[in-house]
């Protein structure tokens, strides 16, 4: 178990855990992520074929379409959103999808900010508490029944 830096809360939400998916290149959600399944469909992207659903999604750099906020909202409503969004810089596009979901009363992932250098040191499974403290785990915690 390793302790890691604390991420800044952008949009608060419940404590979450999940496998870390760190994008190694910028990804446009519109045109790059299936809004129903969360699968990465951009064939030029290194993480093509992986799925963002349920992950601690770490995004060092963003790009592409401003429709990515729509895709984030659809992912949230479809239950295929990341468990948490972790950005190096505040991206008013992906986070907007979360803000609108909150406005619509949908259960939504929290969003955090973490420098990309800190992201690079994280791998495997992580838990984030409400304050943005990140703990790397050996295995996913048991889900309460």
């Amino acid at each position: 178990m390793t302790d890691a830096p604390v991420a800044t809360v952008l949009v608060p939400g419940p404590a979450v855990s999940g496998p870390i998916l760190r994008l190694t290149e910028p990804l446009s959600f519109w045109g790059g992520v299936d809004p129903v399944t969360g699968r990465i469909t951009d064939i030029r992207h290194p993480e093509h074929g992986q799925c963002v659903a349920g992950t601690i999604l770490m995004i060092p750099e963003t790009r592409g379409s401003s429709s990515s906020s729509s895709i984030m909202l659809e992912l949230i409503r479809a239950g295929a959103a990341p468990a948490a969004l972790v950005l190096d810089r505040v991206d008013a596009i992906l986070v907007l999808g979360i803000l609108v979901a909150r406005e619509m009363g949908l259960s939504h992932p929290p969003a955090y900010r973490l420098p990309r250098a800190a992201m690079a040191e994280l791998a495997g499974i992580a838990a984030l508490d409400r304050q943005g403290r990140i703990t790397c785990l050996d295995a996913l915690p048991e889900q309460p029944t």
Binding site: L10, W30, P35, V36, S66, S67, S69, S70, I71, L73, E74, I76, R77, A78, V90, A92, V95, L96, L99, A101, M104, L106
Partner: peptide, 29 residues
């Protein structure tokens, strides 16, 4: 909330708008 996330309390009045959010991506929008 977006302005706060972007680190500003200031607003600018706009002369016009062009909307991209009108494209259908799914039921939520």
């Amino acid at each position: 909330e977006t302005a706060r996330l972007l680190g500003t309390d200031s607003l600018v009045p706009v002369a016009s708008a062009h909307i991209d959010g009108c494209l259908f991506h799914g039921d939520a929008g």
